[in-house]
Amino acid sequence: MMWVIGILLVVLVYGVSLYNGIVYAQMKVQEARSGIDVALAKRYAVLSNMQESVKGYMRHEKDVLEKLTQIRSMMSLNELYQIHQQYQKAEQRLYVLAESYPELKASELFHDFNEAIVDCEEHLQAARRFYNSNVTLYNEKILTFPSSLFASLMHKEQAEFFAADSDEKEQILTKF
């Protein structure tokens, strides 16, 4: 009788640890996602500041920068990715604008902007890599036996990866 209770106890403890493991991994994914939010918010701030600063150069090119979308809480990963692409396009337009105005390109303001964008991009890449690494760990947990049994009972689904487009970005950054 005692050994049956013992086995049940071991199974119970093991089950609790598996359950906690899945919950912890999911928390880490959410925590890492907030890193992407922070990086995008920082990039928004840099772009908005630059938008204000280059107004003088844009008298004849009013549509150089569209209105930038600010990130909101509870945005889906897809929405975040679209914002990320919108920011990239805005940066590209700014760089093209700088090509047409050599005095802007040579200015300290543009140099600072370039540095800030590189830094933002590095932070975003770090946040994306950290997020994706946590997603890998989480997905591993919910797909591998025996934790997959608990995951299906808890109705857990695979987390999405945040897409990478570093090649495209690197081209822009190295150009200037």
Binding site: E31, A32, G35, A39, E122, A126, A127, S133
Partner: peptide, 22 residues
């Protein structure tokens, strides 16, 4: 990190994961 060779070689301890990847 995403590099298995690095994970096999080193243990990484960080107070901020995002900054560690940075």
């Amino acid at each position: 990190v995403e590099d298995e060779r690095f994970n096999e070689l080193y243990s990484i301890y960080a107070s901020d994961g995002t900054e560690a990847f940075y």
